[in-house]
Amino acid sequence: MAKFKKKKSGELPQASTAALPDIVFMLLFFFMTVTVMKDGDLMVENKLPSAETVEKLDRKNKKIMFIYAGKPAKGYEKFGTEGVLQLNDKIAQPSDLKQFIYAELALRKEEVIPFMVTALKVDKNVNMGLISDIKIALRKENMLKISYIAAKPGKK
């Protein structure tokens, strides 16, 4: 192809690609600013139920503490087939919640703590027994604001 042949002196210069980095950087900065890092892999199934009366959660100031629950996902069958919790990157039992809550509280500024919300990201096929255990643990630690994370109906 003639276009890609070596440039000989006197010919027209190639189309300048000097602006390309600028464009790419623009895109890069856009994605950098809107990115929320995924916090690790999910080790539990997490098909959210749907609900109409949902409210948006404010992610600012690390006000939200996430608790995942569901049956162990593929590849994690060694944790059984019953619903389990996932706290950060570890599969856990409701008895581990107390420690988890203390660890999470220690990460946050003191003035944020009264406004903290516990977001329960729970698979829809989980039994309420597990949720009750979570709720009791939260109540004992006085973390009373909870939010059952749900999808809006019609969306997947």
């Binding site: 809107v34 009373l144 909870i146 999808a151 809006k152």
Partner: peptide, 20 residues
């Protein structure tokens, strides 16, 4: 950054638990 981006916004049903 494209790969790690999640645009999802969490929506939830908020409730207040009773004191223990």
């Amino acid at each position: 950054f494209l790969v790690t981006t999640t645009f999802e916004q969490d929506n939830g049903v908020t409730r207040k638990l009773p004191r223990w």
